[in-house]
């Protein structure tokens, strides 16, 4: 039986990334102080909690509408840190979930926080609640909650889609301080337009390391940075290699007529013949590394066929 050739490159790069992360976690274990650049969105978390405490109003937290995955787990991790501080000051929090699995995990985590702080009586059914698993029913429910409870702060962290702006604008309308972050690049501009602080891209995943400063998490961040350097180097050498491989002489010359309109003419035939030697995009080394399963036969979309000698001849030919 034949096996699908997915190539060595993807696996090799992934294993390198994994090695970077694990080796840096190991290296960081013994170290106390590791530098992380300032992330203003995460610095503002304490300010937002303080504001809510002073105003005596709740903090609304939404872990997005996605399934239980790395994104929502990270959101719950951040909410856990918020809940730790909020439980100490008796600030009410509302974690609104659209996914039942995320709700269950968030409920366990936040309850543990309150229990650990000895404030379990402050944890009630409204602290973590399931609103709806339908996108806009959820949006309506959470917006209503933000308006009715006059939330002092809203943290929108997770996987958001079209409902992101409904939350952000509703909270903005009542003057709530807003910290948002999404790994969806399509939603980040909406958050930037409507929220006070936004975690962009991998800042979102750096949050738990930033808030806890645990060596294991900070080490993992350094591993990610090594990975970024590797990717940047690959992009640079990739475009260099591709450019060199596909250097090609011009086949047409741009001229102008009397009215200034463009006039394209073929260059001399000796140069045009060079085009036969040109490499196509799918002949380059870069393409072949990333697409090992595309064979020579597959590249021929419409292979030439031999004429059938027995076929009846059409009239006029």
């Amino acid at each position: 039986m034949q096996y699908l050739d997915t190539g060595w490159f993807g696996i090799f790069i992934t294993l390198m990334m994994v090695t970077f992360v694990l080796s840096n976690i190991y290296r960081a274990k013994g170290k106390k102080e590791l530098f992380i650049r300032r992330i203003s969105g995460l610095n503002a978390l304490d300010d937002a909690i303080g504001r809510a405490t002073e105003m005596g109003r709740p903090i609304v937290m939404v872990p997005g509408i996605g399934d239980l995955n790395a994104i929502s787990v990270q959101a719950v991790n951040i909410f856990k840190q918020v809940a730790k501080t909020a439980s100490q000051f008796g600030t009410p929090i509302r974690v609104c979930c659209a996914n039942a699995a995320v709700y269950t995990v968030a409920q366990e985590v936040i309850r543990d926080v309150y229990q650990g702080a000895g404030m379990i009586e402050r944890f009630d059914s409204q602290t973590v609640q399931f609103v709806s698993d339908r996108q806009f029913a959820f949006a309506a429910g959470v917006s209503g909650m933000i308006l009715r409870d006059q939330a002092a702060a809203s943290f929108l962290l997770g996987e958001f889609y079209a409902e992101s702006l409904i939350f952000a604008e509703t909270a903005n309308a009542i003057g709530a301080i807003q910290i948002a972050g999404s790994t969806k690049t399509a939603q980040t501009p909406f958050f930037i337009a409507a929220c006070d602080y936004v975690l962009i891209g991998d800042e979102y995943y750096a949050a738990s390391a930033y808030l806890t400063r645990e060596p294991v998490l900070v080490g993992s961040l350094i591993g990610q940075d090594w990975g970024k350097i590797l990717i940047a180097a690959m992009v640079f050498f990739g475009f260099l290699l591709n450019s060199i491989e596909r250097v090609q002489p011009a086949t047409q010359h741009r001229g102008e007529d009397d009215k200034g309109n463009a006039n394209w003419t073929p260059v001399d035939s000796a140069t045009v013949k060079e085009k036969d030697k040109l490499k196509k995009a799918n002949d380059t080394f870069t393409f072949q590394v990333f697409n090992p399963f595309i064979t020579e036969a597959m590249k021929k979309v419409d292979p030439p066929r031999k004429p059938d000698p027995d076929a009846p001849k059409e009239e006029g030919k």
Partner: peptide
């Protein structure tokens, strides 16, 4: 694309930490 590279790397690191039980202090 640059942001997505960062997000992808973050997801790999996060997944790895959860898988190997290194995400202490978290979920």
């Amino acid at each position: 694309r640059a942001i997505e590279f960062g997000v992808g790397l973050g997801a790999v690191a996060m997944g790895l930490r959860i898988w190997l039980g290194l995400e202490r202090g978290g979920v």
